[in-house]
């Protein structure tokens, strides 16, 4: 089992932002996970990538618990956010070099790999394509996508190759659309 959530929920100041979630995903598998809303989808994606700790229940990524071994979890998972962030690097190459340094990867090799990945994402807006290419340069075993657009589905599956894909969605409909687009099970 690569990703496992058992009753994983998230609270803040007594308010339940994410109801208990149960997820199972094997190596190389694909799962479009519907959530109660956009906020919940964003938090569940961050829980799967080890960025946010579940308040209750358990989350395991490759048998690592993000509460105890967040660094091990982040080595396995690549996270792609939903929001289009203000772009803070003058060039794509500088962005990749920065990510390569953070992941302790050889920079020149990472730029070549990222350009190759980007060539497979032709037509996808750079605010999604760049973080996706950035997440894939570290060759993660699990790709976590926060509310990806269904129209990008086939290309995402194409560039992810054997990497497991876990995507979160704000509604059942969105999850179904994404799974239809890239033949991901819901």
């Amino acid at each position: 089992m690569l990703l496992e959530m058992r009753g994983a929920s998230f609270h803040r100041r007594g308010e339940e932002l994410v109801a208990p979630q149960n997820v199972e995903l094997d190596d190389g598998g694909r799962l479009a996970h519907p959530c109660a809303g956009n906020r919940a989808a964003a938090i569940v994606a961050m829980m799967a990538a080890g960025l946010v700790r579940a308040s209750d229940g358990a989350v395991y990524v490759g048998a690592f618990d993000p509460r105890i071994q967040p660094v091990h979890v982040k080595r396995l998972a690549g996270y792609v956010p939903h929001d289009a962030l203000p772009y803070e690097f003058p060039t794509f190459e500088q962005y990749i070099e920065y990510r390569a340094a953070l992941w302790q990867l050889p920079q020149a090799e990472s730029v070549v790999r990222a350009r190759y990945i980007l060539s497979g994402l032709d037509g996808i807006h750079e605010s999604f394509a760049y973080p996706l290419a950035g997440a894939l340069i570290a060759q993660p075993r699990l790709l976590v996508l926060d509310r990806p657009q269904a129209v990008y589905g086939p290309q995402i599956v194409d560039v992810a190759k054997t990497c497991a894909i876990f995507s979160t969605h704000g509604s059942e409909n969105d999850a179904a659309r994404f799974s239809d687009a890239c033949a991901v099970r819901v």
Binding site: A49, L51, V71, K74, R75, L85, L102, W103
Partner: peptide, 15 residues
């Protein structure tokens, strides 16, 4: 102010 950098740092395997 630096959300993209913060997100990269947060998702990187760093202590």
């Amino acid at each position: 102010r630096m959300r993209e950098l913060e997100l990269c740092e947060q998702s990187a395997p760093l202590y």
